[in-house]
Amino acid sequence: MEKRLRSDGDHFALLTSYTNDDDPVQTTVMLRARDEKAELPFRVLLEEVDTTAWTHTLREGGFPTFEAATLWWEAHWNGDKPQLPTASPATRATAVPGLPARPAPPRGPSR
């Protein structure tokens, strides 16, 4: 998704963004498609950083109206934690390690 956002960056206009530096670190970005015929013209990007595991998750949600995107935004930052609606079938949450992960603990004997 990050690669697509870099290559399609001129297809969207930035409306607003907000970063909360408390743990967990979260950044939200609201975008509007420049194409008037876009099915879901309003997008919200949500990045969450786990400073303990050194990973980040980037999600994208699509909204048909500015009002719908704003309602999600306000609910999220008020602590309600609503699900971010999927922008497309190809969009899914992805955790990307920032540093090598610690090995998983050994598993006990199988039964």
Rank of each mutant, 00 (worst) to 15 (best):
D10N: 11
N78P: 02
T27K: 09
D80A: 04
Y18W: 13
L15W: 07
L45C: 05
R111M: 03
P105S: 06
F63N: 02
A93W: 00
A33S: 10
A104G: 07
Y18F: 14
R34C: 06
T52M: 06
L45T: 01
R4A: 14
T16F: 03
V96H: 05
L14P: 01
D50T: 10
D10W: 07
Q83S: 09
R111A: 09
D80L: 14
T91S: 04
A69W: 02
R111L: 07
T52N: 12
E39Y: 08
Y18L: 04
P82K: 02
F66L: 14
F42H: 11
L45I: 09
E39A: 07
E36N: 04
E2H: 14
E60C: 06
T51D: 10
T52F: 06
V44D: 01
P89E: 08
H56D: 05
L84Y: 00
W72Q: 01
S17G: 04
Q26A: 08
E47Q: 14
T27H: 12
L58Y: 01
D35G: 12
P106W: 00
D80F: 09
V25Q: 07
E2S: 12
A93C: 02
P100E: 13
T57K: 06
L40S: 04
G61Q: 03
P103L: 13
V49R: 12
R59C: 05
H56G: 14
K37H: 08
T94N: 12
L71N: 10
P100R: 09
E60R: 10
P64T: 08
P41F: 14
A69S: 14
A13P: 01
H11Q: 08
T52S: 04
V29S: 08
D23R: 07
E74P: 03
T52G: 13
P64Y: 06
A53D: 15
P106L: 03
V25L: 08
A93S: 14
T55C: 09
D22W: 02
E39V: 06
W77V: 13
A101G: 11
R59F: 01
P105K: 07
A75H: 06
G108A: 07
P109S: 02
G108P: 04
A33D: 11
P89D: 11
T65D: 04
